[in-house]
Simulated scan of single mutants.
Amino acid sequence: MKKLFLLSFALLGFVFVSSAQEISENAIGLRLGDSDGLGAEVTYQRALGDNNRLEVDFGWRDGNNFNAFKLTGLYQWVFPLDGSFNWYVGAGGGIASFDGKNILDGESETALFAAGDIGIEYNFDIPLLLSLDFRPELGFGDFTDDLDFDIAFSIRYQF
């Protein structure tokens, strides 16, 4: 009976270890989406454990009529789907700043926002990670006082 119990325990442990996903310690790249009109963002991910990580995204735009930046931080939980596919969900927030030069009477504002995140990613055998995510954001300020939905494609180098 003891042998059967130990064998079952060892087999069960092997199954859990062999089905765990591998997330990279670090990944850096571009997140290509709307980002509230800012477009592409520089994105960085840092593993915090076996199945969770921190993602930080920075987007900016410098134009003739306005300057703007947006910094987002998200805590994510990563779950295996099949093979190299994972799905993830996360929550966080950030800060955004808008500085109107020739529009809106030169208005400037800095605002906070809350964000959620859900997506799917494919982890290649080479150090490449592709993902598609959906990020709702709820802003707290005059120019970000609404609910915004952002869909983006990301490409990251893993190291």
Rank of each mutant, 00 (worst) to 15 (best):
G116V: 05
N102H: 01
E121Y: 11
W60D: 00
E107D: 15
V78F: 09
R156M: 15
L54V: 00
L6N: 12
F143K: 08
L71Q: 11
N26S: 13
V56M: 15
G94F: 06
W60Q: 06
L104Q: 07
L128C: 06
T110D: 11
N65Y: 01
E109S: 03
L30E: 05
I95S: 09
L132Q: 02
G49H: 13
K3F: 10
F69Q: 11
S131K: 00
F5K: 09
G39R: 03
L130P: 02
E25P: 13
Y75F: 10
G33S: 02
F143V: 07
D57P: 03
T43D: 09
V17R: 11
L138C: 00
Q158L: 09
R156S: 05
D125E: 15
I118C: 04
G59L: 03
L129H: 05
L132H: 07
F149T: 15
E121D: 13
D125H: 13
L32A: 07
S154D: 05
A27C: 12
Y75W: 07
W77R: 14
Y44Q: 10
A152T: 02
D117V: 08
A47T: 02
G29D: 04
L74P: 03
D148F: 15
I28H: 10
F140K: 00
K3V: 06
G94S: 06
Y157Q: 00
I103T: 10
I126R: 12
A68W: 02
S19M: 12
G106R: 05
G116H: 00
L38I: 11
N123S: 14
Q158P: 05
G139E: 04
G100C: 11
E41G: 07
A91I: 09
N102T: 15
G100F: 05
R53Y: 10
L129K: 05
F5N: 12
V56Y: 12
V15R: 12
N67F: 09
S19Q: 14
Y122P: 03
G49P: 07
L12T: 14
L112R: 00
L30Q: 03
T72E: 14
S154T: 02
I151F: 13
A96C: 01
G106K: 10
D133M: 06
V89P: 01
L128F: 14
G37W: 10
L48D: 05
I151K: 01
Y157S: 02
F149R: 11
L130G: 02
L11G: 14
N102Q: 14
G100W: 03
K2P: 04
L71W: 10
D36P: 04
S84R: 15
A47W: 04
A115F: 00
F9S: 15
I23Y: 06
L4N: 11
N26V: 04
S108K: 08
A10T: 15
S19E: 06
F58G: 07
E121Q: 13
F113Q: 02
D57K: 13
I95H: 09
G63K: 12
D62K: 04
A47I: 04
T144Q: 09
F113A: 06
V56N: 12
P127R: 00
E41Y: 14
G93M: 07
N52D: 05
F85N: 04
V42E: 08
V17M: 08
N64V: 13
G119N: 02
Q21E: 14
F79I: 13
G59I: 05
T43L: 12
I118A: 14
N26E: 15
S108V: 01
D142E: 11
D36W: 10
I126C: 10
D150T: 13
